[in-house]
Amino acid sequence: MLQTDVRKKLRDFDLEVSLSVDDGEILLLVGDNGCGKTTVLNLIAGLMDPDAGTIHQSGRALFDSDLNVNVPPEARNIGYVFQNYALFPHMSVYDNVAFGLRTRKIPAREVDFMVKDSLEAAGLWEIRKARASSISGGQKQRVALARALIIEPEVLLLDEPLSALDVRKQAVMRQELRETIHQCRVPSIIVTHDLRNVACIGDRASLLETGRITLSGPADDAMDWGRGALAEDSARS
């Protein structure tokens, strides 16, 4: 279980977020652009430091301001799919997926075996030699997910994983994403500003508004929240 209770002063507002995600549960963090969604993921991943608070994963403190604990991102074992996928453009699809295993100094033969397995499961084996910069948006999303999952993360964070895809691909990917993430059985947080993703992918949803969670509940209820400003914004987009 991931338990987060953090505070951070941002330029425009104070972020104050408290959330917990069970193993195997997918929490959808919904909110407008600039409300602090990505910051929450960065704080959990260790890419930004909270001003105060705690982050615990299965009882292990990743961050605790009182105890002065701050585990660096490379030691947190968190799978993170970035909004632009952040694939290394100078590497092949294969090397991108193998990166996290090589940093762990896993023997080359084992890396080869694991990467082959992962790429075949994601339908990417055929393009293993292609440069990450030259593949399509859908393929990039699959590579980014495969790269994040191959390290067997204890937490999975996805930042707007479908925003770079066209509408038709988004529908297919929603289902695929949900199935893949559920198979991992780790706490997962998906950040999105698109309410259509909530019911299709998430188990539970939280609405983040200017740094605070204002609503929380089952993913199916989330569509009802959208009567207000969020729904109007979403419909307009």
Binding site: P73, E74, G79, N84, A86, H90, G100, T103
Partner: peptide, 27 residues
């Protein structure tokens, strides 16, 4: 260089030095 590439490397288990030599310098 897009900073998210360095961040991605860090979350994948790379130290600052490993990231510098395997991601930043090649790019």
């Amino acid at each position: 260089i897009d900073i998210s590439l360095e961040n991605a490397a860090r979350t994948l288990g790379a130290s600052r030095t490993y990231t510098f030599f395997h991601v930043t310098i090649p790019l």
